[in-house]
Amino acid sequence: MTSATAAARWAPAPAARLPLVLAVALVLAAIAYPLTDGGGRDAVSWTIVLLGSAVSVTSAAAAHGARTGVALLALVAVTAVVFEAVGLATGFPYGPYGYSGALGPTLLGVPFLVPLAWLMMAWPSRVLAAVLTRRVRPGRRRAARVVVAAAVFAGWDVVLDPQLVQAGYWTWAQPRPGLPGIDTVPLTNLAGWLLAGLVLMTLLDLAVARTARPGGRRTDVVDAAPLLVIAWMVAGGALAHAVWLGLPGSAAWGAALTAVVLAVLAVQARRR
């Protein structure tokens, strides 16, 4: 195979470039978030979530085929509505909370924006988990990927939830005890997200196995967009929380979680 043929083979196809374009647009919208307020900030929040959802679906489709993209959308939407509707009605598994009217239309009391936020978070969490567990023995890798993806999914919310409580999108009836430095979100929320993450990532792993086309595109091309999204939303979010939003506790947790991921990646790089 000539070098030109090899380069053509691995050149990103339009389907692989689209998620990256959407991810860059999301980053620009996220930069605008702390610089706006009121209705403008609400519009930016919707833009971020819609772009993030599109990144997840298009990335999954580019990596594994259109069936996987559709399966991701349907699976996350149903799982999110079920967990959130049960949570609103019973307080399980997150603790008692309620949404404000700022998020617009609802289904079973769950604002439409919420399943889309789950979708924004789900695929990048799985992609990052796959990177973090790639050195695990093959026989244990699948289970490790599910567990790590659930932890990443919950960890992302540690940074995101205080920001959205501050924005007035929902409130907690019993916000304490919480993580050190975060007094607006209870520990029960973290436990709930870990449970929801385990269920969702298990189902998602099964769905990908059943729907993925044989082969697939080069991983580093199609994974760039979801990895950019999660890196910016957690690490960049931590910076925004510290400098502009007055949320030092969640900023510290975002920085700590980012450091853990970087440490794992550094260990992997040394073992090559």
Rank of each mutant, 00 (worst) to 15 (best):
L50P: 00
V78M: 09
A89I: 04
T202R: 15
E84L: 02
L51C: 01
A251Q: 06
V267L: 14
G254K: 14
L116I: 09
Q163R: 11
P93D: 02
G181K: 13
V114F: 11
G155W: 12
V55G: 03
A242F: 10
V57P: 01
F153W: 13
L75S: 06
M201Y: 07
A8F: 10
I48D: 00
H241M: 12
L18T: 10
M121G: 01
V76K: 03
P12M: 13
V76D: 11
P177G: 11
T2V: 06
H64D: 02
G95C: 07
W123F: 15
P19C: 14
A143Y: 04
L245Y: 14
R137Y: 03
G155S: 10
L198G: 11
L73M: 15
S45C: 06
L107F: 13
A30G: 06
A173P: 00
A43T: 03
R137F: 08
A209C: 10
G65Y: 04
V229P: 02
A150Q: 02
A255W: 10
L51F: 02
A71L: 08
D183S: 14
L257K: 06
A8V: 07
G237T: 07
T36R: 11
L239P: 01
R126K: 11
A30C: 00
L200D: 04
L228T: 05
P214W: 13
E84M: 05
A74P: 00
A62Y: 11
V127R: 09
V148G: 04
Y94Q: 06
G246P: 02
V136Y: 05
A143V: 05
S125C: 05
L73W: 13
A151F: 07
A54W: 02
A122G: 08
P12N: 12
A30F: 00
A102N: 10
G95W: 10
R145F: 00
I182V: 15
V264D: 00
L20K: 14
A173S: 14
P124D: 08
V234S: 02
R271A: 14
G155A: 14
V229A: 05
L20V: 07
G192E: 11
A66R: 10
T36K: 10
Y94N: 04
V165W: 15
T36Y: 12
A7I: 08
G52D: 00
A154T: 05
W156G: 03
L203V: 04
A4K: 13
R176D: 12
V159K: 14
G249T: 14
E84F: 02
A61I: 06
L198R: 12
A8P: 01
V78Q: 09
S53N: 04
G39P: 01
A62C: 05
V148P: 01
A122K: 07
D223W: 15
L50S: 01
V221T: 11
V229Q: 03
V70D: 00
A191P: 01
A173Q: 15
R134G: 09
P12Q: 08
P111C: 05
F153T: 10
V78A: 14
M121Q: 12
W118E: 01
S59G: 09
R126M: 04
P248Y: 15
S56D: 00
A122R: 08
V82H: 06
